[in-house]
Each structure stands twice: as C-alpha cells, then as structure tokens.
Design a protein around this nucleic acid. Sequence first.
RNA 1: CGGGGCGUAGCUCAGCCUGGUUAGAGCGCCUGGUUUGGGACCAGGAAGUCGAAGGUUCGAAUCCUUUCGCCCCGACCA
Length: 505
Amino acid sequence: MPDHAISPTRAEDYPEWYQQVVKAADLAEQSPVRGCMVIKPNGYAVWERMQAILDRMFKDTGHQNAYFPLFIPLSYLEKEAQHVEGFAKECAVVTHHRLELSPEGKLVPTGKLEEPLIVRPTSETIIGAMFARWIQSWRDLPLLINQWANVVRWEMRPRLFLRTTEFLWQEGHTAHATREEAVEETLRMLDVYATFAERDLAMPVIRGPKPAAERFPGAVDTFSIEAMMQDGKALQAGTSHFLGQNFARAQEMKFASQSGTEEYCWTTSWGVSTRLIGAVIMTHADDDGLVLPPRIAPTQVVLLPIHRTPEEKESVLACCRSLEAELAAARFGGEPIRARTDTREIRGGDKTWQYIKQGVPLRVEIGPRDLAAGSVSLTRRDRPPKERTSLPIARFAAEAPRLLEEIQQGLFDRARAFRDRRSVRLASLDAVREFFSSGDASQDGVTAGGGFAHVHVADDPAVAAALDPLKITVRCIPMEGPDEPGRCVVTGQEVARPSVLAKSY
RNA sequence: CGGGGCGUAGCUCAGCCUGGUUAGAGCGCCUGGUUUGGGACCAGGAAGUCGAAGGUUCGAAUCCUUUCGCCCCGACCA
C-alpha cells in the first residue's frame, strides 16, 4: 500500500485529487444527466449539518422559511434588464407540458406552452412578485424570508459540488423600508456566513464588496466571503446582495410609508450552496482523504470494536454501548456528541481506512487489551493515521468535547496559516505579474496557483483588462481593519483600500 | 462552444496499430478454510450486449462514419 490513501496526491494532480477524495469519501457521483450529480448519503449528511446550523442562524436573525415555485414565467425574468443579461445564457426552458407516443414508439413533447417557463436560476423575480402582493404598508416591513431549494444554471463546465447544473442552496430574500435597513441586513447576513464559515467549517474567509464586474446581475452591491483553497485559488463561498430598489421598481414592490407617501421597497438577497462541501474538501482534506471539521461531521466519534471470541465480543460491545451513551450525554458545540459503533464483520484495517477517507474526526479502538487496561486507543483525523494515544475509558467521554474542540480549532489555525503564508501585499503591476507567474508557488507541496495578492486597484474596466492575461480577478475588497489609501497599480487613481487578487474557481 | 485525452467486469486498466476459436488481469464481491491491535493469506465461484448507432467484412473490442458521455486546458460563469 502507498503511504497515502488518495492517488494522485495534491501535489501530483490537484483537480484529480479532488475528485478522488469525493469518491473515496463516497460523497457524490456523476449522474446520467449531464452536469448533474447524485449527492450520496455521506455527502448529504454533511449538507444536512450545514443546513441545520445555518437554519438556526437565520431564524435567530428573524427570518422565516417559505417555498416558491421551481418554474418562473419567462416574462418575470424579463422585468429587470441586468438580471436578464446575467442569466439568459444559462437557463433551462420548459416549453411543453405533455408527451405523446409516436408511431415509432418514441415519446415526443407536445402541448406547447403559451408562455415558456424557466427553471429558476435564482428566485428574485418570482419572490419579488409575491412580496409585491404581501406588502402594502410600512407595517409589513421588514419582510424576512428564506427558502431552501434547488436551482438550475446551465453550466458549460461542471465540477462536483463546485459548479453543477443543478445545485442545492438557500436563498434569503428580504424587503425593507429604508436603504439603511437593507444595507444593514446585507451586511448582517454576510457576517452570518463568515461566522458559519470560520466557526463551523473552520474555513477562514475574507469578506468584502465585489467590483462592479463581479456583481450579481441587478444588484447595487454584491458582498462575498472568499476562501483560499489548498492550490492557492480563491473560492467564493457565499454572497450577500444589496439590491437597492432595482427589483422593487421592476416588480412594483411598493408600500405606504408612515407619512402616507408611496415608496419602493429596498431589497436584499443572499445565498450559500452545496458548493460549501467542495470548499470544505479543498480547505481541509489531505492525501489520505476527507477531513471534516467536528462541528459539521455527521459522525464525530466512531467506535471500532476489536474482538475474536464470542466472550470478547460481548464485553467489548457492551463497553462500546455504554461509551456511546456517555458520549450522547456529553456536549460539543451545544449538541450531544454524535458517536456510533461500527459492528460490521469486516477487517479492522479496512474499517479504519474507510473512516480516515471519510474524515471522521476521532477514531476509538476498543479491544480486550483496552478493557484489561481500562483504556481506549485513540486516533485523530488531524494527526497521522498511525499516531495513537491511550486514554482511560472512564475519562474519555469527559475528554471528548475538548478533543473535538482542539481539532476544530486546529483545522482553522492550519487553514489560516496556510492562507497567510500565501498572501502578499504588492505595490506594482509588475510585482503582481511576477507573483502569479512564478513557478515556486508550490512551497507547501501543493499545486502552484499563486495565492492572494493584496493590491490597490480601482474599480475600473482597465484593471480587469490588465489582470485578464494573468487569469486573475479582483475577488473582493476586504472590509476588516482601517482604510489604507493607495494608488491603483493600473490607473493611478486614489483608492481607499487594497483588494484581493487571485485565480479563482 | 474551441483544443487535447479517454470510454472494455463494481473499480483501475491490458488487448486495438497488424480484424480470426469460448475477451483478459489486478483490486473488489460471493463461498469455504487459515487468520485477526491495523488496508491479510489459500482454494473455489459469480460477474462484461467491449459507451451507443450505422457501415466495411465470411468474420469487428480492433477498421471507417456519426453520436453520447467523462476528464484536462480555454472561452463562459452566481
């Protein structure tokens, strides 16, 4: 056996490594439908963890869930000009509503629709149309709605989790009486995403507004959280849009103000998708497979019984059961610890490697020797596969929360250190050019892809044109910290703060 | 959508150039046995319309045409 479970390694072939990790952890696979994936139980369980945490955060910030139709009348999409332009090229269109059996035995579409329906690429238009009905008075505001749904964007180049034709997400849509409130909401949800990414996914992110070229079609401002993957590329992990009154005007979303005047609402929308699963993989997984941060790990502790004789089996399993119960009573992240015993009759080594590849944070082996010594053997997914420690059985359940916290924090620290090592501040276009074209970016043994360059650039087409040959884009303008004025390295314009430049997914 | 690569057993692939009995290997799977603190060993077994369609031929996994899908690069992109 090679000394790592995934082949090729990250350093050998990063994109292929990614796919092998997905396969080895049994998260998802290609479906018969072009560009669409099947999310398998292991992958879906991770999504359910993400949903559970985010849903609570949305509720805690006053939002309610609802559900809107999959189909959107073509005319709705047409209402907002920029929105049309942004999505027209990637829409699935439903034109018929019936199938007929032809004489040749083929099914042919018939029953042409008067107005084609598009499969939602996002729901601003149809939700806006409903909001317009629901909102009459300032007393109806703010209206804070979220929906968990699937959307379809006809992508040319799909990649499991990162970009698929159909994907799962949540989209929040809110309407407010004032610009200030809507901007505040936009930033609040951006913070919710950043908190979730850093606390639960152990994934450090940079938050900030996007340049005009990267904005959501129809938005006044788009904010994103950007994370660095292990190949140095940026991944947009979540977005929050301030839509101004653009959609409200397009959809006649009006309300009577306190002073009796008729006003357009101010709206926002924000979303994260199953792409986050890809983000977690590319942030934490290693050459042995997936590494799951404990907070989103469907199984946090796996108990592996080791036994030969029926007597041993009985006592070992009894120990597992009581340990499971103790762990369920212990708390991590405000919830019972999720532990399970794997009683399958297969070889121990195979089992162990399955859990390594699936990224389970803690593996606990319990055999006759452990029982005799009153201890358990412990291995951690954030440590080498063979690094084993021993812990008294009686103390394990009490220690588990601390161990999980240590892993969670350790993953975050490691990811942040990686990002910081590959982040630079640059003061000229030449320096940018050199940074992104130098071949020695693989200092961590990972594919050369550059990293993040913090550079002063103006929000100007000339900048995009200058960066285009380097295959990099302005990801966002980081919001943390005080202003640091400087001159744009392309146009010479004075700008308030540096932007993050990177190759991106 | 452009360039390149690839579709043969559940997985990874050999065979194709130079067409010729019943299409192979490793891993996995099933059965029996030996094992068991770390991805075991021995024996036996099941498993493939060779991506699909059409053509050439006495004969096609192999040659030709078309088509579908996947991967990489590019273009495009919430």
